[in-house]
Every structure is written in C-alpha cells, then in structure tokens.
Design a protein around this nucleic acid. Sequence first.
DNA 1: TACTATTGTCACAAACTGAGACAATAAGAA
DNA 2: TTCTTATTGTCTCAGTTTGTGACAATAGTA
Lengths: 235, 235
Amino acid sequence: MKIFRMPKTAYLPHIAYDSVIFGFSEGDLKILIMEYHNTGLFALPGGFVQLQENLNDAVLRGLNERTGLTDIYLEQFYTFGDFSRFDPEVMRTLLEANGILPGDGYQWMLDRFISVAYYALINYEEVTPRPDALSDSCEWYPVNELPELILDHRNIVEKAIQTLRDNLDRKLVGGNLLPKKFTMNELQNVYEAILGTKLRRTTFQRKMLAAEVLTRHEKHFSGKAHMAPYLYSFK
Amino acid sequence: MKIFRMPKTAYLPHIAYDSVIFGFSEGDLKILIMEYHNTGLFALPGGFVQLQENLNDAVLRGLNERTGLTDIYLEQFYTFGDFSRFDPEVMRTLLEANGILPGDGYQWMLDRFISVAYYALINYEEVTPRPDALSDSCEWYPVNELPELILDHRNIVEKAIQTLRDNLDRKLVGGNLLPKKFTMNELQNVYEAILGTKLRRTTFQRKMLAAEVLTRHEKHFSGKAHMAPYLYSFK
DNA sequence: TACTATTGTCACAAACTGAGACAATAAGAA
DNA sequence: TTCTTATTGTCTCAGTTTGTGACAATAGTA
C-alpha cells in the first residue's frame, strides 16, 4: 500500500478549497474528478491553504499540481459553509485507506471545514491529469455522467455550472476551453455544451464578430469536402 | 471604560465574515459602518462563526444584532483570503482600547483571518442601527463619503457595489431597499443611486412593467400639485 | 465536371430600446 | 370656478439589435 505523505507544511485549520476544473472534448463539457484509493469515493480536487499563503495562490498551486498548467483562468464563485458538510467519517475512511492511523498528526483533517470553491477553464489538450498522494486517479468526466461525489461536491459542481453560464456572455470566457486558435464552429460547440442548448449558427457568428474580441487568422483545411473555415483567436 | 464582553461561545478560528449592509435614503445609497471605541477606526460590521453554526446563519445572526431585522435579503459575493489582510496591530489596538489585555483569552482574534463577504439590502426606514460590544457607533454613510476603513474593507465595499450593479437587472433586487409599497419614481431613484447614472423615465417604466414583477396598487397622493403616481410592490 | 456539406455574408422581418410628444391629473393660485 | 404648474402614464416613431432563412463561395469526393 502506498503510504500517504503530506508535505510538512502547516495549513490553516478549518479552511479548504475545492476546484471545479472544466475542459471540453468530444463535444462534451467535462470536469476533473479524483478517485481515492480503495474507497470508491469520488471528489473534486481540493486542498488547504498554507499559513502564509494567499488563498488564490493556494488554489493555483493545487491546480498546477493536478494539471501541470501555470496560466489558468480561475474564478472564485462561492464559499460553502453549512455545518452539514461536516462529516468526519468520509475523511477518516479516506485517510485509513491510505494507511494513516488516528494519532499520526492528521487529526486536524477530521475537523469541520469551510470550503471556498473555484472554477477553472483549461484547454483539455494541454493537460494530463495527475492524481495526488491520496488518490489513485484524476480523470475527466462529462458533467452529465458524474459518479456520486462525497459531501456536497455535487452541489458545488452545479453551482459552478450555473455561475459559468451566467458569466459566459458577460465575460466572454468560453475561449479558455479551446486551443489558442479555433474555428467559429468549435467555439459555438463550447457555448452549446456549457449552456446545454443549440444556438443559431448565423446569430452566434454575428454576435461574436460584433463583440470585437476575436482576431481572424488563416483558414483551416480539415480535409473535409466543403468550404474551409477561418481560424480565430481571442485578442 | 466599558468592559468588553464576548459571549463565551466558541468560534471557528481563522474564519470571519464581513457584511456590506445597503440602505437607501435621501437619494443616496448608504452602508452601515462601525466606529470603535477610542480608536478612530472604522470598519464593516462583521463577526465569527460558531463551531456548529451554518456560515449563512452566522451572518444573519450578526445582521439581526446590528439592525433588529430578521427577513433580510442577503447575498454572499466573495471571500477575501490574501495574506496581506493579516494585520494583528489593528485588532490589538481595537481590543486594548476596550480594556482587554493580552492573555485574556482573545489571542485567537489576533490570528490571520479569511473573511467571507456578504451584502444585504434592507429598508432604511425599518432600522435603528445598534453598535456591538466593541464599537461605540454604527451609522449610515453614503457610499461616496465613507471614512477611511481598516484593512481591506474599502476593497470589500467596492466589490460589493460592483456585484450589486451586475446583479441589479438580472435578479431585480432593487426593491429590497424600499418599503413594501413604492412609486415608480422611487424605484428609479434606487436604480440610479446604485448604478451612479441617470436613467430615462419612460424607458425605465416600460422595462419594469414589461418584466411583470410588479403589482400595481392604489394611487399615492403626496399633496403635491400634480398627477398622483401608482404604488407598486414586488410580486 | 458534377455533387455535397459547410461556411461567410446578406436580406428581411420581428423585437427591443432611445427619445420625445401629449393628454390626464392633483393641488395651489387667481 | 377657472387657470397654472409639475409630474405621471401612455403612445409614437426612429434607430438598433436579434431571429430566420437565403445564397453564393468553396474544398474535397464521385
């Protein structure tokens, strides 16, 4: 059995973060989910804040550890603080499955936590998800086919999607889920996956062009038998 | 000197909340600011979370103590977690001005805190602000004439206003700053105070009526020499 | 060379918004 | 009573944005 090793760094007690990491592939909006050793428990990637660390930096650090990425579109969206999310059995199961006994100095992890939730938008292609010390996998799941998640993590995901939808037009963030250059159709597919609805091609194109946030590049020849679309990038 | 007495209840360490309590009077958007005994320090009303209390309930409890209100429109908008907001001197000044010495068991209040920020919209007329044990006043200040605030509280206020503006049309929350029944003109004044811009009377009226969120009641006779406006309430 | 699927753009109608016009008041003044 | 004034509710008209379909251009295949 793999032995759990946490860096000796000290963390702020009672405070955690969870991150909903969105990616886009095969027409689906997906998020990264961790599965823990020998437990069948699934959870959002999360972590703790070092004693002298900015909260935002802690999240970026965790994101970098899971994805290898450094420049990440990241947004804080809600802090979950209900007492009902306190369920020490879940964490105990998780620690014990990793060979950690009570009294190993991880007692603090069994306390009540308030969790600050963030969502990140990343380019699926640039990432090879990496599990952490406690988990044996970190994998993409389509948002419509999530496994059962621990605690209130399902709630967190739903609020993340809702916030993302609300921000989509206001902040024009959809492009963060794509490679630097993309076709208008790919961008539309991202929007449709996030909103869960079909959009009109011509209206969508007109709106995006009118927003003046895109730069048009060379055409992209896919080998298909039809007119080649332009490639775009965000300004 | 008034001696500081905090209920013996235990609180979660490192976690606080701050609330930006909005009211509307005399054409101005105002917020409640506390002034602390003998220090000249001004701050947002805030507090701590009891060990078994929901975060949201803690904020409602604090709001009730400051305003006497129970049904309050409340929205969480951001959690401030930079290490730079750790400044024990401010809290030490504040405790000492209240006759509290080091070793009185309030050491935990000098630690680093992460603060979850909320904004509330209340009906100015229903409220008589009440100071807490540490403060000698709790008063309304127009958002454009705030005193200098401790720590990052000025930041918190600005983010609150920004969020309120963004949510104004989407959530139609402006009515929470008014009595149950109000005229269209009063509602427009609230919108103008929040947005900081003048709006067109006819366009505003048409938009609000088209939204189908208002119920029209009897006319309101103000005694002025002109056509009496209808009163409205939110559905 | 003809055929097909997709793209970029245009055209027109429908819906929405900005800006002003105007009659209908409520109360005071003449 | 009648006139005057400030404000309100509603309408109109123009300008803008959005929904919807049409259509030619094009990259490959048959």
